[in-house]
């Protein structure tokens, strides 16, 4: 699992690559925390290269989304592979995290 960040048109894009499971979820949590240290008004979670996630990783995403909401940071997720998208839907995450097909669409939606 690897997390990288990039500033694009005023949005902080957080790219997660690889697998997030019960063995590395704590590292994922730290990486997300580090990613927003510099702040920002808009965050896009790009999951195009997230190949696997289980409830341990979903828990981290939920806590992160709650934090962004508390800090009034607009956020969205994009580019989920089909299997991950299913997991988000079953978990009801699609009701609390706007999901877009591409980074571009997410950026347009966040304005």
């Amino acid at each position: 699992m690897q997390v990288t960040t990039e500033n694009k048109n005023g949005s902080l894009v957080i790219v997660t690559e690889g697998r997030v499971d019960g063995s590395n979820a704590p590292e994922f949590q730290e990486a997300l925390k580090d990613a927003i240290k510099e702040g920002g008004e808009k965050v896009i979670l790009d999951f195009e290269h997230l190949s696997y996630i289980s409830s341990a990783g979903l828990r981290v995403i939920l806590m992160f989304a709650k934090q962004l909401r508390r800090e009034n940071i607009a956020f969205a997720a994009c580019s989920l592979i089909a299997s991950v998208k299913d997991i988000f839907a079953i978990s009801g995450f699609d009701k609390i995290i706007p999901i877009h097909a591409s980074q571009k669409e997410a950026m347009a939606a966040l304005g």
Partner: peptide
């Protein structure tokens, strides 16, 4: 804001 954390594993 109110979403409870946990229980998702068995739900999945």
């Amino acid at each position: 804001e109110d979403r409870a954390i946990g229980g998702l594993g068995i739900h999945l």
